[in-house]
Structure formats: structure tokens, C-alpha cells
Design a binder for these strands. Sequence first.
DNA 1: CAGTATCCTGAAGGATACTG
DNA 2: CAGTATCCTTCAGGATACTG
Lengths: 135, 135
Amino acid sequence: MSGTYTGVPSVLAHELPRPVPTDELAACPVGNVFRRLGDKWSMLLVVMLGGRPHRYNELHRAIEGISQRMLTRTLRGLEADGLVRRDVHPTVPPSVEYSLTPLGRTLLEPLSALADWAVAHEPEMREARSRQADG
Amino acid sequence: MSGTYTGVPSVLAHELPRPVPTDELAACPVGNVFRRLGDKWSMLLVVMLGGRPHRYNELHRAIEGISQRMLTRTLRGLEADGLVRRDVHPTVPPSVEYSLTPLGRTLLEPLSALADWAVAHEPEMREARSRQADG
DNA sequence: CAGTATCCTGAAGGATACTG
DNA sequence: CAGTATCCTTCAGGATACTG
């Protein structure tokens, strides 16, 4: 592993072969973003809205298990981060449409990569877990 | 990467144009993996070990802010998922080395994509937040 | 329809002390 | 060195009721 390995995150590769820039890492954008998106619903919502815009109650019905409180909070958070746009149409009754901003759209690609990995390898993870349950 | 990018996560693309397979989505591998890796330290540790193997106290020192309890727990979790390998060298004093498994290595690529995105776009997210602080 | 406002619980995670 | 064992706090997130 002395050469340039593709499997090392490119962001970090240029820092090597130092023991890895760890406290920088912990305080760096990566950590921040991971923590912002690492809650229960954010990534899911981004993926949902990546398909097409949705209205509030539409999301509420679609995402079985999410509470109104968390739906609102998560959407507001994503909006504050500039990932989601909230459009209020002053109709009666009011209608609010949520969609991805251009910034939000750029997130779909890496999220897709992770999702693909999940689909491809989650069975292996599950198997590893069950193996250790017996073993 | 995972082929031509449509703007919609490829895992989900084949499900469209349905309103999006949401409860499936919530119960699918993607959700599981997101939740397993979505804790405070897992992704960080995978990235760390992606650089090279580390010993326990080395990680403890490197990752400022992590408690012994959480370091152990997170490593054990990753090990149970088959992402991390734990090698005990029966020396005196004992030395334990943690490294990525082959499965764990495959995770570095999508994680890298996310990390790259974070580095590239986290400033925009931060700016969006501050903009709304002023309002 | 699209939310607030409250209350409440469980789990995540930190601090500290101790051990083979 | 590489952990356990305990205790404690915080807060993410759910449930429920109410509103413009």
C-alpha cells in the first residue's frame, strides 16, 4: 500500500503518508457534513426530493414512520443548509412545495454512490452480523 | 463510478416514475446502511483505517474527542458488520491492530465521493446558514 | 393543508474509575 | 496497552393536541 491507492479518499490522499490528518479530519468539512446529514431522515428526504418535488403532506404520507415534527424540522434544516427549497403557493388551502436546490442536486451523485454500495454490500454486512451471532 | 448519471440515484431510478418507493426505501438496504454508518464516529473510523491500520490507543489519541467507550463500541460495531478486522498480537504488553477488511475497503470509494462533496460544498452550506441568520 | 406547541422516552454518547 | 464497568447527561425523535 505504498503507492497511490484509489481506495483512499482523494481528499485525504494528498495528506498521506502522514499518520492521517486526524484532528483536522474531525474538525473538517467532512465531519461537519457527515454529522449534518447523518440524522434519521435527511439523506432519505434528499433522495426523495431528488425524484421530483413533493408537497408537505405528500412526504408525510410517503415516508411511513416520520412524525410531523421531524418532517418539519428536517426540511427546515435542509432548507437552512441550502439543499432544499420551500415554495409557498398562496392558494386556499395553502400549498407548499419542497424541491432540491442546485446545491442539493449535486449531492445526489455521491449519495447515489453510497446507496449503490448499500444495495450491493448490505447482504454481506448482514451475513457478517449473523455469523458472529452463531460463532 | 456507477455508470451514467441521470440525476436520480441509480438504485431508485428503475423504480420511477412512481411517487418513489418510499416505505420500501425506508426498509431497504440503503436505510439500514445509512443508519448503521450514520453515528458519530463510524465513517470517520473507516476513513482513518482506510489510510493504514491503527492500534487502539493510536486511534484514541488521533481522534480528539472520542471516549474510550465510544471508540471500543464503534470499532466492535464495524467489526461485527465485517468492515473492520481486529488483530491481537500476543505480545507484552498486548498490542491490537485494527484494519479494514476487503469489504471495508470497498466502502472507501463511495465514502470518498461523499467526502469530496463535503470539501467542495460545505462552504456553500455554511454560507447558506449564515445568510439565513441575518435574513 | 401545512404546520406549532408540549410533553415524554430511549438511546447515544461522555466522564470517570478500575483491570488483566 | 487495551480495554470494562458505571453512572450520568443530553437530545433526537415520537405522540398528541391544537391552529391559521
